[in-house]
């Protein structure tokens, strides 16, 4: 599903944000990305959804290679992913259902299919009755559910979540995490960056820990002691 081989990302002014990172995430897997602020979590996620390209090394997601994909093909590639953020990124002047419908319209869904699909998605995220509400009329947890519903419109093979619970209280956080688990249980791989170590420790899922741009721990590779680098994977 995802393969990073010796990936280094250097930003023009701030320098190296990720150095020589290698890891693989399989189909349908759930993995956490943890580490202190500025460690490079969001950078890894941006490389995955190809918002950024690696300075060196190889990023491959669902058979697409970051160095080979043309700029104009990236939107099509993104339709196979779902992406959610800490700040939800909903359009404030549209209702919950319009926000979800928007993603369907933008990606060229047929007109007639949209209302049915929107109401199914709202039900799936537990907001069946909140369709006509505007984001400001929804709690943070509810807004994040709308964002997740929007991320699911194209039945993604991979859901990328950058601190999806960062703005939420404990209860809302648990709800969102449960929702992500359910989504994962139905076959979608989930890659989630989080600061919440409690959440990470309580779950049985894979943990990749990064610090200062280096992968310092990967629970899938028990032989790798914290602080060391993984050997490069051999294939996808």
């Amino acid at each position: 599903m995802i393969r990073f081989s010796h990936v280094t990302k250097e930003y023009p002014r701030t320098g190296v944000a990720l150095s020589n990172a290698s890891f693989r995430i399989g189909k349908g897997e759930f993995a956490f990305l943890t580490g202190p602020s500025g460690a490079g979590k969001s950078t890894i996620l941006k490389l995955v959804y190809m918002e950024e390209r690696p300075t060196s090394g190889d990023v491959r997601v669902g058979g697409i290679q970051a160095n080979e994909i043309k700029r104009r093909d990236i939107p099509i590639f993104r339709r196979r992913l779902g992406i959610v953020f800490q700040d939800f990124r909903l359009l404030e002047d549209r209702t919950a259902e319009q926000n979800i419908a928007f993603a369907l319209e933008v990606t060229g869904s047929s007109r007639d299919a949209i209302p049915g699909k929107v109401s199914r998605l709202l039900t799936q995220v537990g907001l069946a009755s909140k369709g006509p509400s505007y984001p400001r009329e929804l709690s943070g947890g509810e807004q994040q559910r709308v964002a997740i519903a929007r991320a699911l419109v194209n039945d993604p093979v991979l859901l990328i979540a950058d601190e999806p619970t960062g703005n939420l209280d404990e209860r809302a956080m648990r709800g969102i995490f449960q929702l992500l688990r359910d989504i994962n249980a139905s076959g979608t791989a989930v890659l989630m960056a989080t600061h919440n170590l409690g959440l990470v420790r309580r779950s049985e899922f894979r943990v990749i820990e990064i610090n200062r741009g280096q992968i310092v721990f990967d629970s899938a590779d028990s032989s790798s002691p914290p602080g060391g680098n993984d050997p490069p994977p051999t294939d996808v």
Binding site: R72, P75, R78, R79, I83, L90, T107, R150, A151
Partner: peptide, 16 residues
């Protein structure tokens, strides 16, 4: 800009 970034996020092509 925010709307544009969201459009791109959900997979809208540049032309769109």
């Amino acid at each position: 800009a925010r709307e544009i970034s969201i459009m791109r996020l959900v997979g809208a092509t540049d032309g769109f």
